[in-house]
Nucleic acid binder design. Structure first.
Lengths: 327, 327
DNA sequence: ATGAAAGCGCTAACAG
DNA sequence: CTGTTAGCGCTTTCAT
């Protein structure tokens, strides 16, 4: 191809990379030939010579029980943002370290992004042995030397409780993630729980916590357990997007009118909060933004020697139709 | 690395690929060194030399309005299945042909799989210009020379109608996809509509069709439109997983008891059908299986000279709690 | 501002 | 059954 433009291959390489000054005319000719011949550099050859692949690995847990639509938003956030940095995304769905090592050691990717981090995640130690930088969406217990990003779920839990407390609610409950998620000590579930519990305690509120399976019957059970433990509950925080509709329906069936009898704060993505029959007061999970930040952190680590850092996005609570002053 | 095992690099290559007989002892030594040194072939170098990347491109429409969980199942089906062929998956989410050409012309992938095919999909013509084979999940109008796979939605529509007719229902309606999906002439929506309509006509049933936005209010509207057009409807087919719960809730609010007053057949993945408050009679959308078949077709095209073919999976209707004989 | 040439780490003839 | 070697198509010194 280079020869068609009457230049050397290195010149073509340089106009493509911009890593050295090219005279106007030369650049013109090269760019014209590129266009006319529909030339594309061979990704493998480029990777071999430059040890950069322009590909990012994204390890996403595509378990169906877990909140699919939220994951999807993370994924789109990552993919869209990666394109901004001229990168494509390799999707790994088996959350074992084998996949990590395969793509990393095989030099298939420039960096890795991992979702669904657990407190003591077995994948984290292997990251240390990889040449490529990694960014975690979520926080393991020990974040030393790690790049992490997530919504500050602890602050989110606190914000939800404070909102309810300010409205005068004294009996609050949290309906959270499925027990499977809790047992894995998935980072966000633990942090949410902690924030909710601590803030409730600090404000002197009665508080209860119930996990909730992501199914209709799971939601019914969770609501019934809450009502049994705390019959006079008037403030409810729900951190389970899948169960949300069923939780609301069950509350109604049990004779609780929202927000007259009971105020509800959801912790979920914006579109879910406003897509319900009645718009929910909610703490937003900015999945798309988190995905974007993850990519930005990854790319900056790839580029320079930016040190690892952990970034927690501040929660934003938006009041909608499901919270009201306690009577 | 090869030298650590006392063999030539080509021998290593051959034990890895199995493309030529290796003596027992030699193979042992090589495999041991591989393990001890944690050796991994460089993907780029391999791609350069062999012009095989062991990567598949998957173009998935990650629009939020479209049924996210179903898409996710396709994606996991593809990724999981790709791994059985020792392939990874590059995820493209912008459904323009630019992405196709980038990954194909750059030799980043061995084959392409595209979802969300429209009747006259603008991406299809560009496939012809690519070196890599492509498989479509869904059917464009003209499938000549194309590899396509999907549920036979037309047969699914017919099956749903036949089931209702056999139960004695004479007034049937279909609540379908959002108008945006219809206007793009997304393949499955058109085919479903056709199957429903034709079978209803052939059986002499009164039939009505209403699109349905994927939101609570969209569902309410659709139900109300159906009831307005066809007050005595007793058979309903719903092909819109997102709206499904709201459709059912609205029906109840309008005083229709299921299945006493009205029988309902959903067209949706198995887990959605059985995850509702009451298990739905449904025609399964075997998303995982379709994804798997797509990969199999892609790999067989990559391997040999299998000709392009289109495969439509036969629908399976499972009777559950939402259909009953007409009174 | 451009070219020449040495790899990058594999695969696949081609020899034996 | 195994080794030698010529590329694969780029990037990047090193020259000029």
């Amino acid at each position: 191809m280079a020869r068609a433009a009457g230049v050397s291959t290195s010149t073509v390489s340089y106009v493509l990379s911009g890593k050295r000054p090219i005279s106007g005319p030369t650049r013109q000719r090269v760019e014209r030939s590129i266009r006319e011949l529909g030339y594309r550099p061979h990704a493998g050859a480029r990777a071999l010579a430059s040890s950069r692949t322009n590909v990012l690995a994204l390890m996403a847990p595509l378990r169906v029980d877990v909140n699919v639509s939220v994951i999807m938003q993370f994924v789109t956030g990552v993919v869209t943002s990666a394109r901004t940095f001229d990168h494509d995304v390799l999707l790994l769905t088996q959350d074992d370290s084998a996949g990590l090592e395969r793509v990393a050691d095989g030099s298939m990717v420039d960096a890795l992004i991992m979702m669904d981090i657990e407190a003591d995640d077995p994948r984290v130690p292997v990251l240390a042995g990889l040449r490529q930088p990694a960014v975690l969406i979520g926080l393991p217990t020990n974040t030393e030397g790690l790049s992490c990003v997530d919504l500050d779920f602890e602050a989110a839990g606190r914000a939800a409780v404070r909102h309810l407390a300010q409205l005068g609610h004294r009996q609050v409950a949290l309906i959270g993630s499925p027990t499977a998620v809790l047992e894995r000590h998935t980072s966000y579930a633990d942090r949410m729980h902690r924030g909710f519990t601590q803030q409730s305690a600090e404000l002197g509120l009665d508080h209860a916590y119930e996990p909730c399976e992501s199914s209709h019957s799971g939601a019914v059970d969770a609501v019934d357990r809450v009502l049994a433990r705390m019959p006079h509950v008037t403030g409810l925080v729900v951190h389970n997007e899948v169960a949300l509709p069923a939780v609301i329906a069950t509350l109604r069936e049990r004779g609780r009118t929202i927000p007259d009898d009971l105020s509800l704060v959801a912790v979920c993505p914006h579109d879910i909060a406003v897509g319900q029959p009645v718009p929910l007061t909610s703490v937003d999970i900015p999945a798309h933004a988190i995905g974007r930040v993850a990519v930005e952190m990854a790319m900056s680590r790839v580029a320079g020697q930016q040190p690892a850092e952990t970034r927690l996005l501040a929660p934003v609570l938006t009041e909608r139709a499901t919270t009201a002053p306690a009577r």
